[in-house]
Design a protein around this nucleic acid. Structure first.
Lengths: 141, 141
DNA sequence: TTTCAAATGATAGTCATTCTCCTATAATAA
DNA sequence: TTATTATAGGAGAATGACTATCATTTGAAA
C-alpha cells in the first residue's frame, strides 16, 4: 500500500494526516502478522526515533475507533492489531502466539444462512467471528 | 452445585482440596456471568476476608490448567472466567461488557461437517469457537 | 502423628496501557 | 503566505491487572 493511499484513508475518516499516523499504519500493514504495540514501536523507531510510546497507543486507539484497523486478542497475551478490515476469522496456534487471518466466503454464507433460519432468542446478531484453534503444519506461511 | 461436588472435581484432577479453592470455584459458579478476578475477590472476601489477591490468581490459573474453568477474553477488558466446561460459544454485547454462553449442538455439527469436507491447508483444527457480537433485546437473562 | 510437597499470605515488582499537561503542528481561513 | 485554532504529539508519571518471591502454613499420604 502506497503512502498516498494511507493518507487518503486518514482524510476519508476526517483524521489529520500526521507523520506518526502514517508511520504507524504503514508499520501495521508491513508487519502484517497482528503485531503488538511493542512490535509496532520497535519497527517505527528505526525511522522515527522520537516517537513517544503514548503517541503510539493514542494513534492505535484513533485508528481502531475510526475503523482503519482492528484489535485482536487471544487468551494469553497482550492486545494485537490487524490492518485487514475485510470480514475474516482467525486461526490461533494452540502452542504459540501465532495468529493468521482466515478468509472463507462459503463459510460466512453458510453461517449467515444458518442464523437467518434459526434466530437466537432476544439477541440481534451484528457479526459472527470464528476462533479456530489448532496447529500449523508448516513453520511459516 | 454442592461443595462435595466441587471437592470431587478437585480430587479428580489431583489437586489438593483447600478452602480457598472451594471458595473460588463456588464463586465462579454462583456469579455465573463470566466474572473477572476482581468480581471473584469481592465475592469471596465476604466469607473469607483473609484471602490474598495473589492466591486468587494462583488458584484461577491452577483451575484453568486443570480444565475446571476456562478463560474468556473480549476486545476491551480484562480476563474473565467461566465454569461452564461443556463446549459452547459466546454472545458478546456490542454496547456493554455482558457476555452470555451460547449452546447449539446443531450449529456445532454443521461446522464440524463443513471443516471435515473442506480442510484448512497446513492447519490441524482442534477447536472452533464462535464469537457472536450483537445486542441483547432484554436487560437480563 | 509425622512428614513434606504443595498451597497460601504478604508484599514488592512488572509491564502494558493510560493520564496529565505542556508544546507543536495540520488544516482552514484571511 | 501567514495567522488562527483545534487537534495531535512528547515526556514522564501514574495506574492497575497480574506475577514473582519467599517465608509460613497445611492437606493428605505414610
Amino acid at each position: 500500500m502506497k503512502i498516498s493511499e494511507i493518507r487518503n484513508k486518514l482524510i476519508e475518516k476526517g483524521l489529520k494526516v500526521t507523520p506518526q499516523r502514517i508511520a504507524i499504519l504503514e508499520a501495521i500493514i508491513k508487519l502484517n502478522n497482528h503485531p503488538t504495540a511493542e512490535n509496532i514501536i520497535d519497527y517505527i523507531r528505526n525511522n522515527h526515533p522520537n516517537i513517544a510510546t503514548a503517541t503510539v497507543y493514542k494513534v492505535l486507539d484513533a485508528l481502531v475507533v475510526n475503523e482503519l484497523i482492528k484489535k485482536v486478542k487471544t487468551e494469553r497475551d497482550v492486545m494485537r492489531y490487524d490492518a485487514v478490515m475485510e470480514n475474516h476469522h482467525h486461526l490461533y496456534c494452540s502452542e504459540s502466539n501465532r495468529i493468521e487471518d482466515f478468509f472463507d466466503k462459503e463459510l460466512n454464507e453458510m453461517i449467515d444462512k444458518y442464523f437467518e433460519n434459526k434466530k437466537i432468542p432476544d439477541f440481534k446478531i451484528e457479526d459472527v467471528k470464528l476462533q479456530v484453534i489448532g496447529k500449523f503444519l508448516k513453520d511459516n506461511e
